[in-house]
């Protein structure tokens, strides 16, 4: 066992892990942050997406020991300080951007990484950025719409396909 220390959602976090412990398992099992989902466990679906030092990372494909000293943010950090949904989360609710909700934490983390780099993406840019986030329910359209709306763009013309 090795001790790892990192900052998770602004707080110091540490724990004893094996070499093979994944960042996703550390977040879920050691820290109880179960908002980070494990969907495929093969780096394909993006349900486990978190931010490591500000970058979108699949937590099922990074070892916990490699996040030593890093600044990690998960879905649990996304709500506003008063506990209300942030703009992106609220847009997913308003535009019906989720059904079962399993992919949603990854979608929100991915979308927030996109909006940080590109505050007003086009529809094509949103779709391209979400290449690594798979949703079995929504057909993506309302997810794209929610992200466009959260970026302050008019989505009334975005017709359902």
């Amino acid at each position: 066992m090795t001790q790892v220390k990192m900052t998770v959602n602004g707080k110091a976090a540490s724990g004893d892990v094996e070499g093979r412990t994944l960042l996703a398992s550390f977040l879920r099992e050691n820290l109880g942050l179960t908002g980070t989902h494990i969907g495929c466990d093969t780096s394909q679906c993006g349900a486990c997406l978190v931010h490591v030092n500000g970058e979108a990372i699949k937590a099922c494909t990074m070892l916990a020991v490699e996040a030593e000293g890093a600044d990690v943010k998960t879905i649990e950090s996304m709500a506003n300080a008063d506990g209300s949904l942030n703009v992106l989360q609220q847009a997913f609710q308003d535009h019906h951007g989720l059904q079962c909700g399993f992919c949603t934490p990854g979608m929100i983390m991915s979308a927030s990484a996109l909006l940080k780099d590109n505050p007003k993406p086009t529809e094509a840019e949103v779709r391209h950025y979400l290449d690594g986030n798979i949703c079995r329910c929504t057909g993506y359209h309302n997810i794209v719409k929610a992200i466009m709306a959260a970026s302050g763009q008019d989505v009334s013309a975005l017709a359902a396909e």
Binding site: G46, L49, A56, T61, S110, Y129, G132
Partner: peptide, 9 residues
């Protein structure tokens, strides 16, 4: 290559 998270690692 792949998707944004793959390109970040």
């Amino acid at each position: 290559i792949g998707d944004p998270a793959v390109r970040n690692r």
